[in-house]
Design a protein around this nucleic acid. Sequence first.
DNA 1: GCCAACGTTGGC
DNA 2: GCCAACGTTGGC
Length: 155
Amino acid sequence: MRHWLMKSEPEVFSIDDLKENKKTSWEGVRNYQARNFMRDDMQLGDKVLYYHSNAEPTGVAGVAEVCRLAYPDPTQWDPRSKYHDASASREDPRWLMVDVKFVSRFSEVVSLESLKANPLLAGMPVLKRGMRLSVQPVSPEHFEEVVRLGIGGVA
DNA sequence: GCCAACGTTGGC
DNA sequence: GCCAACGTTGGC
C-alpha cells in the first residue's frame, strides 16, 4: 500500500465536507505528474493525507482513503466547468480522477509550520519550496508521523 | 493582494 | 527543440 498527500482548498472542499459527504470524486486535477500518480500508482485502500491549502492554517486536516481507481474526469468535457479542456476527447480522455472516502478528521490541523519544525519529516515533498503538486507520494514513515501528530492533537 | 516558483504554450 | 511569455499555485 502506498501513501499520498492530496491538496484541497477548504473553501472549495474541506475535510468537513468530506466527512459530511462520506466520499468525493477528486475532480479537477490538470497536471500530468499528478494524473500519472493517480493512474499508475494509486491503489484501492491507499491512505491519503488530506491537506488544506490556501487556508488558515494551512496543513494536514485529516486522512482519506482511495476507494475507486482512476477513471475519466467528466469535467474535462463540460464547457461550463472551470476544469473544461477543449482538447480532451471522449475517445481519449486526458484527465483522470479517483474517488476518496473519509477516514478521519484531526481535531486540529497539523500545520505546515509544525510539519516544517519536525525533524522526522525532513525531506517530505510538501515541505519543499515551490512544491505545487496537488497529488504527491508520502513515505510510510512520514505518513505515520503526521498521523501521530494529528491524533496527538485529539483532546 | 503580492509574488516566487513552476508548468505549459507557442513562435521561431 | 529552444525559450520567452504567460497562467496558475499557494505561502505569506
